[in-house]
């Protein structure tokens, strides 16, 4: 995260934040682990689930609650892939880059998506519609190459089928997007789709 970015979001008013109901979820986890410093990762998991990403205010809140240095919390949050410090797009597309998917040419899927939407893995489109990510094996190697669009696992993909699904999801209004994916068949489609 760049410094310029941070100046746009001025430092938190932590007190004010406490009224946010999502903080209640974080508090619950804090309590469950008796505010032990060892529970940092568990707390970060809950926070990420509740907020979608970890912003500075949230990390300051957690650091205070656990009596940990802020740099420590930030160091842990950035060590693990799961924690995201930036808001995710409306839709997410995760392409598995496990060995089985790789030998079945998952890299080509990523390249196609990258070309079309102009985002590299780990990035979100400027309009906040789509986030692209890679995964280190989703353990569905029998279906390689595998991708996950909005938590829907899709197997035996090709660059063309992947793109047509993505276009469909991104074009659809937010509420129905997931539904349209789940109704899509799992079988690979032949040839390019408009």
């Amino acid at each position: 995260m760049s410094i310029a970015n941070k100046q746009k979001n001025p430092p938190a008013k932590v007190e004010e934040a406490r009224t946010d109901t999502r903080y209640k979820l974080v508090d619950r986890t804090l309590k469950r682990f008796h505010y032990q410093q060892d529970a940092l990762i568990e707390v970060l998991h809950t926070a990420q689930e509740a907020f979608g990403f970890l912003d500075d205010d949230l990390m300051i809140y957690i650091a205070r609650a656990l009596k940990l240095p802020q740099s420590w919390v930030y160091g842990v949050a950035t060590f693990y892939h799961f924690f995201s410090l930036e808001p995710q797009g409306e839709h997410t597309c995760v392409v598995c880059m496990g060995t089985a998917c790789y030998v079945k040419r998952a890299a080509e899927i990523i390249a196609t998506v990258q070309d079309e939407f102009g985002i590299a893995p780990g990035q979100t489109t400027a309009d906040g519609k789509l986030s692209l990510a890679t995964a280190r094996c989703l353990g569905s190697c029998g279906l390689a190459p595998v991708m996950v669009i909005d938590n829907q696992v899709l197997g035996k993909e090709t660059p063309d089928t992947a793109m047509s699904r993505l276009r469909e999801v991104v074009a659809a209004p937010a509420a129905t997007a997931t539904a349209s994916v789940s109704s899509a068949t799992i079988e690979p489609q032949e040839g390019p789709t408009p």
Partner: peptide, 8 residues
């Protein structure tokens, strides 16, 4: 924590 790609 089975992290090897291709192993489940």
């Amino acid at each position: 924590d089975e992290g090897d790609p291709g192993a489940y």
